[in-house]
Simulated scan of single mutants.
Amino acid sequence: MELTIRKMTKEDQDQLIEIDDRFTADSILVLSMDKNKIHYTVENIPGYIKSYKDDEQLEESSDFSAYIDHPDQAVYAAYIDDQLAGYVTVKRNWNEYAYIEDMKVDIKHRRQGIGRTLVEQVIQWAKEHKMPGIMLETQNVNVKACQFYESCGFKIGGFDFCLYKGIKKHANEAALYWYLIF
């Protein structure tokens, strides 16, 4: 198995990106705060399959043209033996952090170091662009992703219980804002 990370270029612009991003949501991070530090416990919930493709327009999720050849944005694709296995999109955010807008690893390629390698690529990109760190947002029902980011050194910097209610009025999901400060 050969893992290659490549910054996407104009030649890749029309490449169709199909990533199976499904995961089982069978637990949730229950948040608490003490002395300005956010803590969590994990509680089991009735399991269901979730895909972010269900929450977004497919055309928007695979249009990387704004990231290509832009000094403050990039998209990196991960390939296993020349087959697309994942990607990450990153940009300079208004607060100067590198903001991971999207990161997906195909379900059949998880737990092979691809996500960690993509995060390492973003760290390198952010440092080259003299940014103070990296931030991203994920949901408290994506426990495996939360635990992955935490294992990469990210800390929860904030949360929002209302963010997803605009999409689904009765959503019981919280947005978690994760930070890796250099």
Score class of each variant (00 low, 15 high):
28 I>M: 14
31 L>N: 02
24 T>W: 08
82 D>H: 15
142 N>G: 01
43 E>M: 09
6 R>Q: 04
60 E>S: 09
173 E>I: 14
79 Y>E: 07
181 I>D: 14
77 A>F: 13
89 T>H: 08
119 V>Q: 01
170 H>S: 09
175 A>R: 14
54 D>L: 06
153 G>I: 05
9 T>V: 11
123 I>Y: 13
182 F>D: 14
2 E>S: 13
144 K>F: 11
101 E>F: 04
113 G>D: 07
136 L>C: 02
149 Y>K: 11
117 T>S: 12
142 N>T: 00
8 M>W: 03
21 D>F: 09
75 V>P: 00
48 Y>H: 11
41 T>R: 01
37 K>L: 11
54 D>E: 14
115 G>F: 00
89 T>P: 03
97 Y>D: 01
13 Q>H: 07
76 Y>E: 07
119 V>P: 01
81 D>S: 10
30 V>P: 04
5 I>R: 03
1 M>G: 11
165 K>I: 08
49 I>R: 05
4 T>W: 10
133 G>K: 04
98 A>C: 10
50 K>Q: 09
109 H>I: 06
94 W>H: 07
61 S>D: 07
153 G>T: 11
84 L>Q: 02
160 D>E: 12
69 D>Q: 10
83 Q>N: 13
167 I>E: 12
110 R>P: 00
70 H>N: 15
104 K>N: 13
174 A>M: 15
22 R>D: 10
147 Q>Y: 12
159 F>T: 04
149 Y>M: 12
157 G>M: 02
139 Q>L: 00
47 G>K: 02
179 Y>M: 08
105 V>C: 09
30 V>A: 07
102 D>W: 14
149 Y>W: 15
74 A>K: 06
39 H>T: 07
46 P>R: 05
41 T>I: 13
151 S>G: 09
99 Y>W: 12
14 D>Q: 13
140 N>D: 03
140 N>E: 03
49 I>M: 10
38 I>A: 01
38 I>Y: 01
96 E>M: 11
73 Q>G: 07
68 I>L: 05
90 V>S: 01
37 K>I: 15
80 I>N: 05
89 T>W: 07
11 E>G: 13
150 E>W: 12
97 Y>T: 02
160 D>Q: 06
97 Y>Q: 01
24 T>D: 08
88 V>G: 04
168 K>V: 12
76 Y>C: 10
130 K>W: 07
81 D>Q: 13
52 Y>W: 14
60 E>G: 02
182 F>V: 06
118 L>Y: 09
96 E>F: 12
61 S>G: 02
171 A>K: 06
41 T>D: 14
64 F>S: 02
67 Y>C: 00
72 D>I: 08
162 C>H: 14
20 D>N: 14
87 Y>F: 15
82 D>P: 08
22 R>P: 00
79 Y>V: 06
102 D>K: 10
145 A>I: 00
157 G>A: 03
74 A>T: 09
178 W>G: 04
54 D>V: 04
51 S>A: 06
143 V>E: 02
109 H>V: 05
138 T>V: 02
49 I>D: 11
157 G>S: 03
45 I>K: 07
159 F>P: 02
26 D>L: 03
137 E>Y: 05
167 I>N: 04
2 E>D: 15
60 E>M: 08
99 Y>L: 11
42 V>Y: 13
76 Y>W: 15
139 Q>M: 01
36 N>V: 04
113 G>R: 06
130 K>E: 12
45 I>Q: 09
54 D>K: 10
61 S>K: 12
